[in-house]
Nucleic acid binder design. Sequence first.
DNA 1: GTCTATAGTCGGATAGAC
DNA 2: GTCTATCCGACTATAGAC
Lengths: 244, 244
Amino acid sequence: MPMPTARAQHPHKRRHPPTGGYARGDETRAKIVAAALEVFGTYGFAGASTRLLAEKAGVNLPALQYYFDGKAGVYLACAEHIAQRLEARLGPIIKDITHVLASEAPSREHLFALLHGFLDTYADLLVGEREVEDWVLFIIREQAHPTKAFDIIFDRVFHRAVRTCAMLVGPLLDLPSGDPKVLVRALAFIGQVLFFRTARAAVLRIQGWPDVKGDRLALVKSALREQVTAALGGAARAARRRRS
Amino acid sequence: MPMPTARAQHPHKRRHPPTGGYARGDETRAKIVAAALEVFGTYGFAGASTRLLAEKAGVNLPALQYYFDGKAGVYLACAEHIAQRLEARLGPIIKDITHVLASEAPSREHLFALLHGFLDTYADLLVGEREVEDWVLFIIREQAHPTKAFDIIFDRVFHRAVRTCAMLVGPLLDLPSGDPKVLVRALAFIGQVLFFRTARAAVLRIQGWPDVKGDRLALVKSALREQVTAALGGAARAARRRRS
DNA sequence: GTCTATAGTCGGATAGAC
DNA sequence: GTCTATCCGACTATAGAC
């Protein structure tokens, strides 16, 4: 089976001690991962050839062996990279939300504001940025046939993102945030954002758009915001409900 | 580039006349396509080997050449197959909806009923059925890097599905069904259903489910139905709006 | 129409020079 | 640490027997 094996080592654990400092080696590793994300994203693990990986990275073939113990190691390093980058982007807002929820019981308006902030960040990142195109294909392949790479991304990013979303949706529906219904809603919100990346070609053709950036991205975000607000009952209607 | 070329012929056009009747040939073709959907779904075009295709189909290697003029031909035949099967399942309800909308101006309740029916059919098919697992990966890869196969599926299925959904969403939002905002909503509805297939591994882990079938599929469908109703203002609220 | 045998190419990984 | 040269298995496609 052409899938990552257990042979791969941690991408930053050297097989031989560096000659001194971290200069060349880490640079080369970064070049390889950057190129590999694109190649694995486009062709998948089996379809990607080590020769293409090396060529796009501007290194020679044995470098993949030396730095990552082969193709499977490069693949896992890509998963690590994706998890790191997503964490860096989503981490701060997740932390904010967790912090607010831990210290107070926010008003309905406040919950909506946090949810909108979260989904906007999500949309800017996943729909708006070029580099995630490769990540998304990488991740969806892993969803269909999970390997160790899926665990890395799920544990470090996806799990926390959905839980955070559910912690906002739960109170808005007057249900515990672990309720399956709440989780379905949270997943649906994240899913509808993601769709504008995964089905991008179809979205562009349907809308007659050249891309989803600037005003067009803003339109998508605002429509989805309205949709989320209405789907959860809205702030005004809920306040009314609370008074009764 | 390891992508389908123009060399592929129509999958049902024989290179040589049949000996009489359609017996063996079409059976073999069907076996090959069925196996190929799984293999291309799992490994992608580049990652799929003709050896594996032949083995899983229970035919010998040159059969792929003979019946489909090679790997690329088999790939296009898969796209054709996916489009046909989706058309068969979604066609009737799309026809129903088109027919109702052409002959009358349905009530708000009626529009919701049609929309729910459409999305339920969509969910039963895409989330509930095993065989679409391979289709979805096939299609998402095509979304990222469209080939001729994407045109086939987009023109025959996707375009009509989204337009139909928009024709129900438009009236419910008091906007023309071609308005970008309406299309964003329609895409979001379809996207949130699809997410439960594309991100299945994550959904199962988050929910702690073994699959999305039976009661669990029913839960997803009912939660999404509620969500769609609320997101579009609901039947009761809208009737109120109309009276004012 | 169906299959065996094989041609020609490209794949991942490594040996060993520097 | 870095690279050239190379091994050998797997790949797609075809020739030609039946």
